[in-house]
């Protein structure tokens, strides 16, 4: 009876990344800076009249927005908790990054507009990562550790197993034992209580291995960064290979980050920007 029930709705699984998926492409990722962050200095004159909330550095609850010396603006998506305050307050300056391609191979790669990283550095990093992941081939095992998440990141990771995302079609499986794991996906800001279990899990994994920091909390600590109880992201505990912002990141963003880390996608496909 369950067999027939399972056939009832046909194939509901996405073809992404082989084929585009509208839900993936329309996904509202972290905030981004429009027009490369230029041409804002002239408007600063009115900020005083509009109140302190319009001061750019006070706009963001996690301090992701920075005013450069030349008057331009940068936004660290690794700190963005997707609250949309900047987009609401200064729609001419900030918008949403669309699509699943929010993860990056370097922490600095999450800052928009992109800080000039020499292509050479990036190419070198990708080559070294590919060297490590080539051996994994098309049978990859993931181990997840929660280092102080709010619980929603776990839901989005579990979603990868539902029939819509179905990571098994990509040769990716979740495993219980760190001994069988190739990829460690960590959620949460890095509570001090989880530092030791996290480190032990990492040590228990055989080489080669890669680490994915999943979610803004794991990348930077988000709203909880650096207190007596948590650290500012799991990068302070482990060497991270892929950084995925999002509060929480969508299942497609997690899928993108995974394929990015495995060298099965180009780095940081330029995300379409909409106001």
């Amino acid at each position: 009876m369950w067999v027939l029930r399972g056939l009832r709705n046909g194939v509901v699984t996405t073809r992404w990344p082989a084929k585009p998926d509208p839900y993936a492409d329309e996904w509202r990722g972290p905030a981004t800076v429009l027009d490369g962050g230029r041409g804002t200095a002239g408007e600063r004159g009115t900020a005083g009249e509009r109140g302190t909330a319009d001061r750019l550095d006070q706009l963001c609850p996690t301090g992701a927005i920075d005013q450069r010396e030349d008057g331009g603006v940068t936004l660290d998506q690794g700190k963005c908790i997707c609250c949309g305050r900047c987009v609401t307050a200064r729609p001419e300056l900030f918008g949403w990054a669309r699509g699943p391609a929010s993860g990056a191979l370097t922490r600095g790669g999450l800052v928009v507009p992109e800080i000039a990283e020499t292509d050479e550095d990036l190419a070198q990093m990708r080559a070294s990562l590919r060297g490590r992941t080539r051996a994994l081939g098309r049978s990859v095992h993931l181990r997840h550790v929660d280092a102080g998440s709010d619980g929603s990141e776990e839901w989005e990771l579990q979603a990868l197993l539902n029939p819509v995302y179905d990571v098994h079609r990509l040769g990716v499986f979740f495993t219980a034992s760190p001994r069988h794991a190739d990829v460690l996906i960590v959620t949460g800001a890095g509570t001090r209580g989880m530092a030791e279990p996290l480190r032990l899990t990492y040590q228990g994994m055989p080489d080669p291995k890669i680490v994915i920091a999943a979610g803004t909390d794991a990348v930077s600590g988000g709203l909880l960064a650096d207190s007596y109880a948590t650290r500012g992201g799991i990068g302070e505990i482990l060497p991270v290979d892929v950084w995925v912002p999002g509060s929480p990141p969508s299942p497609f963003s997690l899928l993108h980050a995974l394929l990015l880390g495995l060298g099965r996608l180009p780095d940081r496909q330029s995300a379409e920007v909409t106001p």
Partner: peptide
């Protein structure tokens, strides 16, 4: 393990 210091935050 998951104490995040939320009340102080």
């Amino acid at each position: 393990y998951k104490h995040r210091g939320i009340e102080k935050r």
